[in-house]
């Protein structure tokens, strides 16, 4: 279950910002923290990497989001991952 801390650069237009905060707070995966000027602190907690990716994409496409910086990430489990398309292992012992 990945947990990430995000620093989101947001628009300075108040009517878009209030709608944005409403959108984010409606999703239980997100927890909103400090909102200072054009920056918003948010925690994202998801079940797996796939959901994490989808939530990031959703967030980045919301009106009013200019830029997302990830400043913290906790890995419950590491990927121990091998892409299907990595092909040189057959040459190894």
């Amino acid at each position: 279950m990945p947990v990430s801390g995000l620093n989101i650069t947001i628009t300075d237009k108040p009517h878009i910002t209030s709608k944005l905060l409403e959108n984010i707070s409606r999703d239980p995966s997100f927890e909103i923290g400090l909102h200072e000027g054009n920056h918003l602190a948010v925690v994202l907690e998801t079940n797996d990497a796939q959901q994490d990716k989808h939530k990031h994409r959703w967030l980045s496409q919301l009106p009013g989001v200019i830029h997302i910086d990830v400043v913290f990430i906790y890995f419950d489990e590491h990927g121990e991952y091998l892409s299907d398309s990595i092909g040189t292992c057959e040459n190894m012992a």
């Binding site: 801390g5 620093n7 602190a41 400043v71």
Partner: peptide
């Protein structure tokens, strides 16, 4: 911890 890190970066 995640929230604290995000807030601190702001």
């Amino acid at each position: 911890a995640a929230l604290s890190a995000a807030s601190a970066s702001i």
